[in-house]
Design a protein around this nucleic acid. Structure first.
Length: 931
RNA sequence: GGGCGUAUAGCUCAGCGGGAGAGCGCUACCUUGACACGGUAGAGGUCCCAAGUUCGAUCCUUGGUACGCCCACCA
């Protein structure tokens, strides 16, 4: 028995546990595998709206495919999130008054992070359960698990051996807060208010040249001044101490006289050359650029091209170094302190020309929020350009398809301009780089230290080292060990990039005795990836590169990690603003679940998840869909009260009554629409189709039309309708289940003993056999008539509670017979006293209406304002006339008749006939009233 | 500077080469034996602008306007 109302707080955990206990979350059956790997949330994370959307969509797909008989594996897990996690634990240590990580030492700190992970990591996975996510929790993985770490080592070593990973001294993005390099993607460029300082760099030996200061219309110089300096402009004065040259464009005539000469670098008191390079834009600033190779990405290129000296100015925290090429005064100053001092000192020397306010794009670390400093350091790089080749081709060839398709352009744009990927991080939490350095600084890369040692010994033997000493080092008896491991860890995204195959057991599961043996073959490539566009570069691109490089099919062909990538929108607030902690406009999904139930939240997210559109979430919206779930609940209660319980042997194609055949027909249409929409990731269309059908067809019409029968005398017709109603409700439960799993499961199990839970019930497979166009025509006629009568009643202001007789002016059409069958239905739904067919010659007075080509009169016994009736009829007639005019205009256009397809012309003719007939009846009714 | 997207009812959005739609909101009426988290009816739109293609454009093409997002080294 169904309670008076559905109680999500009580039912959701109970149902979830029952599903999990039944084994429904594990792949089962002989169907084709359907695999999704979850975008692993950060171990530090908690569920926000973006997760709720992302995982709801994945769960909808998993439930849909499970019901269609696929062996569904939704692979869950978490990401170790290097920087984020290290930050959380460091903060916690500080808050608890513990020693900081440096004092603790690396090993103790990492151990502490693991402890934290066990205690408080992964709350998000518990929260996903509240959403109803059907992940196979028995397969939960973590990027730092031993198996996944083995995958990282294997990939690193292989790429190194192939020359696709290398160590290099390059200019990288340095985060002075976390004291680590970060990749280009982790840098956010933001416009900030800055300054543009113009300095004089005096020429060596007091040299002078004529610099043009005025030009005629043709751009020829007309006026000159004598200069003993070159003017440069900068937004970062503190870097001038590291200038190696001043560059001008080779075609810039203004500076031609001094190219090749030297100028004084003020404050540093060094002389630097004036060189030419294509990089400076003569029309920007003074046309002369100071070249600071070690602290600017453009300058770095110029410096390399022209062999200009580079001076590293700052330490890990972006403080000026204590080195001889930096004047004493600035050493150890913070970079901004140094900036201020330098501008003051330049000004004091009379070398400051001017200071302009200027908007500048500044790079910020996406996690630290501090300004990134370009720094020349030794780092590990992945040759992304090489790996991208296959990844680009796979999308070009359609082996992987983006949905919506235009995201492939974003993907291509980035992939075709990809830069080397800096993968080393100067952190402690993460996969330590499997590289060791020998006494001569030589680097050995191997999956284990053992292997690295073997390599080292082999090398040093052939190089003629003293074997005794090497032996002592290996044994650890020498002053120094043979090998020292690289201190750095890998970018978190390095391991995330392996996720689609590392979670399935690669590389260990390639061995026949591994428990996951065979899983890679059945579940890789995965079926689809569901994610938001903001991690296409971070994650999707990396999985494509790694998957295609490491995974091969039986014929040795490279395999994409997924044939389809569904990109959903972001969740934004009612005003379209991105939800964020800092803005404080975030809505906690768990609050909404508490308030309205998980089903309501899920349905809202799906109904709003139109392709290429963000999800605008509002409380009101969720409330509306909670109402929908209540509506469903009440419909089920009605069915239960009226003995409509699912009958095992019921054959919907053999339903007898017109009403039953009609609801079967409509159910089929809905099932088809929902299925097609889900197959194409049109979640909103699928949700809307089921919503409309449930509420506006099943509840509003089917149940209402069923009442006279269900509440009438027993008999075969009633039995038939009961069974059909129960069947239709079952189909609704199934179609709705992926979206609203809890309430549907609860209804499914409440009143009938079922062989299985709804979660594993068979998805409706309905075909043309279920169609009943004649029944549909008949019921639609009935619906039109009832609607028309209701409309008339209200527009002429008849009392809602009062019943009137309806007279039908018999026209010899199908209405005569239909009214005999459905008279009782019309009476009930339109609140009539009686329905009678009479001869059209009688022409009774009353409220006339026209429906389905027939005229009817409500016998209101004069208790109505006849003018209102007339006005209504006149309005209707007017509308009909206008429609006829529009069609006539078309039909009288010779070109239209000649060139439009025959069926379109025919359709227009039929439309005209329909309106003409209606107009006819309306005018007749009107004239009767006038008489 | 490059790329992408969006403009349709008060709001949020579907839609589509031939009759402008939904939800919410609004108005009126209704405690009708599932449901007031409900029912019934209704008001409300130069489908951003302009030109073009077409027998026909809200839909296709081009241009423009407005807004949003992403990428990018103008010192």
């Amino acid at each position: 028995m169904l309670d008076k109302s559905f109680n999500p707080a009580e039912a959701e955990p109970r149902l979830y546990d029952a599903w999990e206990a039944s084994g429904a979350f594990k792949p089962s059956g002989q169907g084709d595998p359907f695999t999704i790997v979850i975008p692993p949330p950060n171990v530090t994370g908690s569920l926000h709206m973006g997760h709720a959307l992302n995982n709801t969509l994945q769960d909808v797909l998993c439930r849909f495919q499970r019901m269609r008989g696929r062996a569904v594996l939704w692979q869950p897990g978490m990401d170790h999130a290097g920087i984020a996690t290290q930050m959380v634990v460091e903060r916690k240590l500080a808050a608890e008054g513990n020693q900081d990580r440096r004092a603790m030492g690396r090993e103790a700190f990492v151990e502490r992070v693991w402890e934290w992970k066990e205690e408080s990591g992964g709350t998000i996975l518990k929260q996903l359960r509240r959403l109803g996510a059907t992940c196979d929790w028995s397969r939960e993985r973590f990027t730092m698990d031993e198996g996944l770490s083995a995958a990282v080592r294997r990939v690193f070593v292989t790429l190194y051996e192939e020359g696709l990973i290398y160590r290099d001294k390059r200019l990288v993005n340095w985060d002075p807060k976390f004291e680590t390099a970060i990749s280009d993607l982790e840098v956010e460029n933001k416009e900030t208010n800055g300054h543009f300082w113009h300095f004089k760099y005096p020429l060596e030996n007091g040299e002078t040249y004529e610099f043009p200061i005025a030009h005629d219309e043709e751009g020829n110089p007309t006026e000159w001044e004598t200069r003993d300096y070159i003017s440069i402009a900068t937004t970062r004065p503190e870097t001038m101490l590291g200038d190696g040259a001043v560059a001008v464009h080779p075609d810039d005539a203004r500076y031609a006289p001094i190219v090749g000469k030297r100028c004084l670098l003020p404050l540093a008191d060094r002389y630097i050359p004036i060189i030419t390079d294509e990089y400076p834009d003569p029309d920007f600033g003074s046309g002369a650029v100071k070249i600071t190779g070690a602290h600017d990405f453009n300058d770095y290129q110029v410096a390399k091209r022209n062999d200009i000296e580079m001076f590293i100015l700052m330490d890990e925290q972006a403080r000026m170094l204590n080195v001889d090429y930096i004047p004493e005064k600035y050493r150890r100053m913070d970079r901004y302190e140094a900036r201020e001092a330098i501008v003051m000192d330049i000004d004091e020397r009379g070398l400051l020309i001017k200071t302009e306010d200027k908007k500048v794009m500044q790079p910020f670390g996406d996690r630290s929020g501090v300004v990134i400093e370009p720094m020349l350091t030794d780092q590990w790089f992945v040759d992304a350009e090489e790996l991208a080749k296959r990844a680009i081709k796979a999308v070009e060839d359609g082996d992987t398809r983006f949905v919506p398709e235009n995201w492939s352009k974003t993907y291509f744009q980035w992939m075709r301009n990809i830069e080397p990927w800096c993968v080393s991080r100067q952190l402690w939490w993460g996969h330590r780089i499997p590289a060791w350095y020998g006494p001569d600084g030589h680097c050995f890369v191997a999956e284990t230290e053992e292997d690295a040692k073997k390599q080292a010994v082999a090398r040093y033997v052939t190089e003629g080292y003293d074997m005794e000493e090497i032996d002592a080092m290996v044994r650890g008896e020498a002053d120094a060990p043979l090998l020292v491991r690289d201190e750095d860890v890998l970018d978190t995204w390095f391991s995330s990039g392996l996720w689609p195959f590392s979670t399935l057991g690669w590389p260990d599961a390639l061995e026949a005795d591994h428990p996951d043996y065979g899983l890679l073959k059945t579940n890789y490539p995965t079926s689809v990836l569901v994610t938001a566009h903001d991690i296409i570069f971070f994650w999707v691109a990396r999985m494509m590169m790694m998957g295609l490089h490491f995974m091969k099919d039986g014929h040795g062909a490279a395999q994409v990690p997924f044939p389809e990538v569904y990109i959903h929108g972001l969740v934004v607030d009612e005003k379209g603003q991105k939800m964020s902690k800092s803005k404080g406009n975030g809505i906690d999904p768990l609050d909404l679940i508490d308030k309205y139930g998980a089903d309501a939240l899920r349905f809202t997210l799906c109904a709003q998840a139109g392709q290429g559109r963000n999800v605008r979430l509002s409380d009101q919206r969720v409330e509306g869909y909670r109402n929908f779930s209540t509506k469903l609940w009440n419909a089920a209660r009605f069915a239960e009260m009226n003995g409509c319980s699912a009958e095992a042997g019921f054959d919907p194609t053999a339903a007898r009554s017109t009403l039953a055949r009609w609801i079967v027909h409509e159910t089929r249409a809905c099932a088809e629409e929902a299925t097609e929409a889900l197959e194409q990731y049109r979640f909103n269309d699928a949700a809307a189709a089921v919503y409309r059908f449930t509420w506006n067809v099943f509840c509003d019409w089917h149940l209402e039309l069923s009442k006279p029968v269900l509440q009438g005398a027993d008999g075969p017709e009633k039995e038939d309708l009961r069974a059909a109603t129960a069947w239709a409700l079952d189909q609704i439960l199934k179609l709705l289940h992926p979206f609203m799993p809890f309430v549907t499961e609860e209804i499914w199990g409440a009143s009938v003993d079922r062989a299985t839970h709804l979660i594993v019930a068979e998805w409706p497979l309905l075909d043309e056999k279920h169609d009943a166009p004649e029944a549909a025509a008949e019921i639609n006629w009935l619906i039109d008539l009832v609607s028309e009568i209701r409309s008339v009643r209200q527009t002429v202001d008849l009392p809602a509670g009062e019943k009137f007789p309806l007279l039908h002016l018999s026209g010899g059409g199908p209405a005569d017979a239909r009214l005999k069958t459905y008279g009782a239905f019309v009476e009930r739904l339109a609140r009539l006293e009686s329905v009678t067919s009479i001869s059209p010659d009688v022409a009774p007075k009353g409220v006339a209406l026209v429906s389905g080509g027939d005229t009817y009169v409500l016998d209101v016994a004069g208790s109505v304002d006849l003018d209102a009736v007339k006005a209504r009829l006149a309005k209707e007639a007017d509308k009909a006339r206008k429609e006829i005019d529009v069609v006539d205009k078309k039909l009288s256009n010779e070109k239209f008749v000649a060139r439009a397809p025959a069926e379109v012309v025919e359709e227009q003719k039929e439309r005209r006939a329909g309106y003409a007939e209606k107009l006819d009846k309306l005018t007749a009714a009107l004239s009767r009233l006038e008489a």
